[in-house]
Design a protein around this nucleic acid. Sequence first.
RNA 1: CGGAGAAUAGCUCAGUCUGGUAGAGCACUGCCUUCGGGAGGCAGGGGUCGCAGGUUCGAAUCCUGUUUCUCCGACCA
Length: 570
Amino acid sequence: MRASQLLLPTLKEDPTDAEVVSHRLMVRAGLIRKLAAGLYTWLPLGLRVLRKVEAIVREEMDRAGAQELLMPVVQPGDLWQESGRWQQYGPELLRFRDRHEREFCLGPTHEEVITDLVRREIQSYRELPANFYQIQTKFRDEVRPRFGVMRAREFVMKDAYSFHLSEACLDETYQRMYQTYCRIFDRLGLDYRAVLADTGAIGGSHSHEFHVLADSGEDAIAFSTESDYAANVELAEALPERQSPPPPAQPLREVATPGARTVAEVCAALGVAASQVVKTLIVRGADGGLVALALRGDHELNRVKAEKLPDVAAPLTLADEAEVMRALGCPPGSLGPVGLSLPLWVDRSAAVLADFVCGANREGFHFTGANWGRDCPAPRIADLRNVVDGDPSPDGRGRLVIRRGIEVGHIFKLGTKYSAAMGARVLDEEGRERTLIMGCYGIGVSRVVAAAIEQNHDERGILWPDPIAPFRIALVPVNAHKSPEVRAQCEALYGRLQARGHEVLYMDRERVRLGVVLADVDLIGIPHRLVVSERGLAQGTVEYKARRDDTPMDVPLAELEAFLAARLNS
RNA sequence: CGGAGAAUAGCUCAGUCUGGUAGAGCACUGCCUUCGGGAGGCAGGGGUCGCAGGUUCGAAUCCUGUUUCUCCGACCA
C-alpha cells in the first residue's frame, strides 16, 4: 500500500476525550474515529488490524470444526419473549418497533437466534454435536461506554454456540474450545491467562475467562506462583494464614476514639495496623432484617461471596446510616462484634485474629485486646473477602499474585437454559425426544485490538505484535523528491517485496519531511522499517530497524530479501 | 443510577469573571528557503462560539432551559 493513497490522519496531540493509552493511540494513529458515545468508525489502517484478528480467530475456529454462519443484527422481540430475556435484560438491550409496530432489538448476543435456527433445522442426534460461530457486530447500550473500543456500545464479537445430547459431549467441545482459545491468543502474540470465572446468572457448571494482562485492565485476576491455578479475584477462594487464633494475651479495654470512623482513622488514633482491626459491615438480610459481616480492616468485602450466604439478601445492599442507628443505636464507624445484637458472619482471616481492635458499639469508642470466644461468641466463619497479593493459593501450592487483566474471551457451559425455554429438541438413538445441551464461546474481536495496544506500546506509539500489525514493513525513502535513484530503488524494492507477499506500507507521500514520516511509522507501530537513502545506496546498503530495536543496522541491498525473510519468520 | 466538569477553526486550547461584533499553535492551500527524527518565512482559506429562548442599544461572555460529551462513584463503617 502506498501511503499517498491511504487515509492516515495521525495526530500529534492526544485527543482530550481519551483516557487510556490504547484509546489515545488508536485515535492518534488514525485507526478509529468516534461517531458518538461508544460508536466508532474503523479507518483503513484500523480495519486492517481488525481483519487480521478476525482471520486468526476464523482459522482456528474452522480448525476446531466449528461452522461459520452470519445472523442478523436486528432480532425479533418475540424470540426474546420466548427465552424470557425480554423481561430480564435491562436497558442494555436496545429495543424499537418497525413500521408494523412489531418489537425488535439490536442483538447484544445471539443465543435466541441460534437456538431458533437449530430447533428448526436439526432434528436428529446424527447431526450432533454441532458448533456454529459468527464474527459480527453486537450492540449493548452500555450506561457508560468508555476507553474507546475497549468498552464500546457497538463492537465486533466472535460468538459460537455448540449443541449436544450429553454433558460428556459438551465437556469435549468445551475442552476443545479452551485449547482453541489458547491457540488463538498465542497466535495473536498476546500475554494472557485463562482464569476460572463466576458463571453468574447464566448458571452452568464451568466457565473460563481469557484475560490479556495489562495494568490498565478493568478486572483483577489472581494466579499462583507455583501452579497453574488462575481465577477471577471475585471467585478465588481466600485462605487464612493460620487455622485458629493464638491465645489471648491482652485484656479487653474500651478506649475513646473521638471522630475516628474509618479503619485508617482508627489505626492512626490507636497506633495499630489495619490487619489487627476487625471492621463490621451491616447489610440487608434475606428476611428483611440486618446482618453483620466482619472482616479484617485491610481486607475488602467480596460481593459475590457475601450474596451466597443464606441469610444475606441478594443483591448485596449495605444498610444506610439511619438503618444502622435504628437497629443498633450506634452509627457505622464504631461497630464491632462484642455485644452485637445482630446475626454475624466472620471472614476466615478475621476469625484467626487475637487481641484485635474493633468498634465498641458506642459512638466514639473502640475496644482493644478483643478476642473471639472470650469477649464475644465464637464466630460463624465464612469466606467473605477478596483475595490479596501474597495470599496462599487455594490449591495449596504457592502464593497468589494479583494482576490486572482485560477480558477478551469467555467460554461457558450454558446447559439447557435456552434450549428448554425455546423447545430445541432432537430424537436420540432410541427415538426419544431430548432437550439439547448448549455451550457458548465468545471473543471480543475489537477489544482484542485495544488490549493488544494496552500491552504493547511505548512513548512513541504502538508496538504491534507481528501477526496483527496492519503492515509488516514500512518502506521509507529519504529525500525521494531530490534523488531519482532513491525513488527508483524504492519503487523497485516496493515491487519486489510486494511480489514476495510482504505487506509493505510505502511512505511515498511527497514533500513530507523525514522526521514526520519516521514519527508516523513509530506511532502506527509497523514492526519492521526500511530506510532508503542516497548515503546508503552509495555503499549498496539499506537501513533496517525493528520497531522494538534501539539502533538501526545497515543491510546490503543484495542480501535484503533473504535478511527480511529470516527476520520476519523469526 | 448518583455526583462533578466541559462544549469556541479539522486537532489542542485562550478569550467568558469585568458584554462592544473571534484569537494562538498545529493541521490545510500557494510561493520561497531548508532537507536523516514532528523546520523557517511570506501570503491565504476555514468558526451562525452545541442548540433554543430571555436580558440588553449590543451576548462567545449575563440568565433560563435543553442536547451532547467527558470524568468520578456505586467496597464505606
